[in-house]
Amino acid sequence: MSTMAETTPDDPSLLVICVDSNPSQGILRRNPDALNSIINCVTAFGNAHLMHKPQNKLAVLSCHHNGSKFLYPSPEKSLEIRQMDGQYEFFTFVEKSIKFNLSELIKNAPKIVNNVESMLAGCLAMALCYIVRVKKAQPIGTNLISRILVVTGSEDSAHQYMTYMNVFFTAQKERVVLDICTLDNTLVLLQQGCDITGGHYLKVPQLDGLLQYLLWIFLPEPSIRSKLALPPAVKVDYRAACFCHRELIDIGFVCSVCLSIFCKFSPICTTCSTVFKVPVPIKPKKKKIKT
């Protein structure tokens, strides 16, 4: 669905990883230690991306139950930036920064009483703003390739439908590829986002192999993925669900004012209360062909 800009192998590539750290996720409720191994995998994966090309860039965001925050690079210069001689030191710096900022985030977050859903769509929106800023700061002529990888164990959220859609369309417009790595649930909504932006969707069969999956599936840049033998894209169902019964429909009626979808004609729109003109001149009777 999306068009890829022409890219050269020398173009820098910005990877933004959004990690869900919300303790309400099923996997973390079952095993609180899982967060540690997820973060380790994500950090190793981020460093692998940096190692791939010297001009590559990385950002890591955490989506916590009380909001989203950058783990790397740190927005506040709370971490002392020392002179770094070698690449190796740089990688440890990335790792330290991620772990320090995450522990600060967890320490300062209020205790949760009930389970709270992760505001992942907002986290993605924040990542997009960051990408747009980094893009703008590039010297003229540089083509920054950018993508977002989501690592989450959360469920689909109907509340965030609008935000998700806005994020997907914006990502498509800004040519940002959206990759999804889900650890627990099937995410129908995010699957649509992958399809719209040309990214990959993967449900990890078991958490143990997470790093392997990340490196195999998500490390290659989108432009060369077509040449690799990756698992086939999941078939995405884009049929509409009517607002009245939540049923999947092939043919429906759409309100010309608010674009709500209904499965049958009704004289008033239940969403925007518009009264519709009843179709008076009934068109020449056609026999309905049942299929």
């Binding site: 884009y238 759409v254 309100c255 004012v257 729109c269 518009t274």
Partner: peptide, 13 residues
Amino acid sequence: QECSLIKMGFPHG
């Protein structure tokens, strides 16, 4: 401008 319900099709790919 009239308000009406417009019949539309949602094909699956």
